[in-house]
Write a protein that binds this DNA or RNA. Structure first.
Lengths: 340, 340
DNA sequence: TGTCAACACGAAATCGGTTTCGTAAAATGA
DNA sequence: TCATTTTACGAAACCGATTTCGTGTTGACA
């Protein structure tokens, strides 16, 4: 890398002190017009840019937000990132992105690296493995150090920080109720293992809608997908039961279920309906296109970053953790019957 | 944010100098075992973490790589990010991600912010608007300042830096040739406007395959999609021609074309074949699933970051820009006839 | 002509570390 | 016992900025 031009260089070259240069460039009234012009001209000519590290060190702030995501090749998470970046960018912040790959160890590492002063605050969605092991000390340490932290989507109550979530119970309820209303009464639920709390919450909504309708929950219609194994084979098993609809907690499961239904000769949506979660490209472009719960990832990202920046910039008086709930809505497409 | 514990704090508290603390923590032989133990114990107890900004300033390196992408909610780009992050992480680097949103202005801004010392090097894929305006001075300035830069996918010859690209001509050729071999001779090409060079290159491959077969290029079968307008309507127009296959330069176009073909009553792949580009989820989950050119985004990301880090860490002797070509291959699925 | 304010600038501290160099005290050797 | 080498540590410079405080030079005013 070429030798960068610094304030010191300019000062030496022009025979003034560094303080004068600094003041001149910041247009201080203490410096005469002549000197200012001279210094500014010189700086412009050599394309001087203040070293951001020096500024960050002095100001004790980086204008950087750390983001840790479980995955990136994933419609929902990439949408959230987009929202975060947009919100951050508007307020003059930049984002540093890391991935945990759903691994506890990587999450801890990332958290450690980012919490040593390189960022002003953090936005995180917890890795599956961490949710499984239930060891959240790395987050609690962060909270103790009073580093601003916002969790989104996959959150955990025992970490005392701001949170942004979708109304998972409500979403599960809405989806299930819609299916019931169109007279699909034998609804299979394809979800995640219990420890992924969003899955658990969506299931609550599912069960609530059923019980409101006076239908008892049939455990055989609920399958928890183990991602390490073959997903399609697991979903296929539920088709042994007598079912006429599927509610899946993400779009991959939904698309897979629909595919199986088609293979079995069901006509969609006349004989069989599908509702997914996360309004991604698969749902939009598969045929028939899939009705989904739209998660509003963009909105979540924006909200998360807004709360975070507020926390960063406001002198922490008494700190009351906030929980922001983003409502989700059903995006009707071809995999369900038109609402009556 | 809570007052951070620094070396100075430790020094004062233990009645030694900051140099002693620093040396002790770095396990210098200059410090007696007793003192070292005492200092380390104290540091551990109060969870001391060296301020990374201070280190970065002193070492004149940030171990940070800036990444500027046109978009993020996009299978190919998010895959590349994943590759970059993996490669970076292995070498102890982190990534700072910004988006240009295909806008020239945002690209310039991002480049300016990242080039003031906050990152050790940059990986960029150029925004469409920039490709259109053909103004690359911001990149050239970067090259002049000798800030390590790697361009990928959307690259431009006049910027003298390392580049990582897919073999777009070869890929277009492979796809077209496959279609020809299965006896689809009236192949429509759905591509981007000429200024997006990857589109242009893929088109070259298409034309090459045709001319090898002795088929002259029919301009009516080639449509350049203007993304600001309705994509489906534009693609529909090509169906006015007599065609029996489509080669599309991305998966959205491919999926849309297939949908139209199905609506028109074509049987796929018996009567009509489709090949797309970018092996994303749409291609995998649509039905029939779509044969695509797999772009190996992960591989591209890894290669890009590897070249970049080499450039960063190697003392720049005579600098010979590299161009790395990643070969792509056809991933056969249901939207084409089995190869004979 | 003496006093004081305004002006224009520089010295030095600061942010939080690392590192070079110097040195007092202890250990070693002759 | 005196010279020399280790040992163990501190002072200060440095990375690149900003900012407070001080100060020499003017000019104005009484």
């Amino acid at each position: 890398m070429k030798q960068k031009i610094t304030i010191k260089t300019i000062a030496k070259e022009l025979g003034v002190s560094t303080s004068t240069v600094s003041k001149a460039l910041r247009d201080s009234h203490e410096i005469s017009i002549d000197t200012k012009d001279k210094i500014k001209a010189y700086a412009a000519m050599f394309n001087y840019k203040p070293n951001s590290l020096a500024l960050q060190l002095r100001n004790q702030k980086t204008k950087l937000i750390g983001v840790i995501l479980p995955r990136i090749v994933h419609h929902f998470f990439s949408t959230v990132i987009k929202g975060i970046e947009q919100g951050a960018s508007e307020k003059g912040y930049h984002i540093m992105v890391c991935f945990s790959n759903e691994s506890y160890k990587k999450e801890v590492e990332n958290l450690k690296v980012l919490s040593n002063g390189s960022v002003d605050g953090l936005i995180v969605s917890i890795a599956k493995e961490t949710l499984e092991t239930k060891d959240f000390t790395h987050f609690k340490d962060l909270v103790n150090e009073e580093i601003p932290l916002v969790l989104f989507d996959r959150v955990v109550d025992e970490i005392l920080c701001d949170k942004v979530v979708v109304d998972d119970v409500g979403a599960g309820y809405k989806a299930t109720k819609y299916l019931l209303n169109q007279n699909s009464l034998k609804i299979a639920l394809i979800t995640t293992p219990e420890h992924v709390n969003v899955g658990a919450l969506r299931r609550q909504g599912y069960e609530k809608a059923l019980s409101e309708k006076g239908i008892s929950v049939n455990k055989k219609l609920i399958i928890e997908i183990e991602e390490k194994e073959n997903i399609k084979a697991q979903i296929e098993r539920v088709f042994d039961q007598d079912i006429d609809a599927v509610f899946a907690v993400n779009e991959i499961y939904a698309a897979t279920a629909m595919r199986i239904a088609k293979e079995k000769g069901y006509k969609i949506p006349q004989e069989f309906s599908v509702i997914g979660f996360t309004d991604g490209l698969i749902s939009e472009y598969s045929s028939p296109s899939i009705t989904t719960i739209a998660q509003h990832g963009l909105e979540m990202g924006k909200q998360a970053v807004e709360v975070l920046i507020e926390r960063i910039e406001k002198e922490a008086e008494v700190y009351e953790p906030k929980k922001i709930v983003i409502s989700s809505n059903l995006k009707l497409r071809e995999s369900t019957k038109p609402s009556s």
